[in-house]
Design a protein around this nucleic acid. Structure first.
Lengths: 110, 110
DNA sequence: ACTATATAACACCAATTGGTTTCATGTCAA
DNA sequence: TTGACATGAAACCAATTGGTGTTATATAGT
């Protein structure tokens, strides 16, 4: 259910450096939009839109607390990226380990 | 020297599903542009532009053979992605292994 | 009740993206 | 050397992206 009917996928979501920085920021602690904005040279509205894209990709969870909405990292969708990468490990290391890791896991499209 | 002065970075390059498919295709064998085009529902020129973006990210190598240019996967830049991902492994598995893997490698920005 | 705060939603804009067709160049084969 | 093939380069276009400012709504504090 993690990757169904998402407008933005994980690959797209992490393509932007601002969003990658946000993910690291939100890995430490849950934060409201205004606090997040303090870490970036852009308007709160822009930050909010980045957060929406991350949310669509399932990479952040939001929680309403009073008048603020707090965001937090949800790392699980990154698993898709890890799976994708695993295929290519074969090509930068010839170690038997990589081959073993690959054949004992299931492959995918793309 | 791998990641200096690139117009398109790895994260951007793999954001597009067509380019991800190309990388898998070119992992098996070196292929000229026309052959590659056969695998995609778009013009040869469009394929060529995707290949240029992959080349800028260092993800493919080209080799001129006669009148054709053959492309092949160059997986090494994907290492950056792996490094980036490694940080987040901490958050989807609490195993000591992940922590160990993290602390014994160097972290980076973004 | 009033005022300030937190956020989302909306309308707008310039730049980039992903595609197209056309043109130019280089190479192979006859 | 003439013609076909392989590719890159250029000009163009619609849609998306990443940003802005403004407006609307809900909640908190007094």
């Amino acid at each position: 259910m993690a990757s169904s009917s998402v407008k933005h996928d994980v690959f797209q979501a992490i393509a932007d450096p601002t969003r990658r920085k946000m993910l690291k920021l939100l890995s430490n602690e849950e934060m409201p939009v205004t606090s997040i904005t303090g870490h970036f040279p852009m308007s709160r509205t822009a930050v909010s839109k980045h957060l929406r894209i991350l949310k669509e990709a399932g990479l952040v969870k939001e929680r309403k607390v009073g008048r603020e909405t707090r965001y937090k990292l949800e790392a699980e969708p990154l698993y898709e990226l890890k799976d994708w990468l695993q295929f290519f490990e074969l090509f930068w290391e010839n170690k038997l380990n990589a081959l073993k890791r690959f054949v004992e896991s299931n492959d995918s499209e793309n």
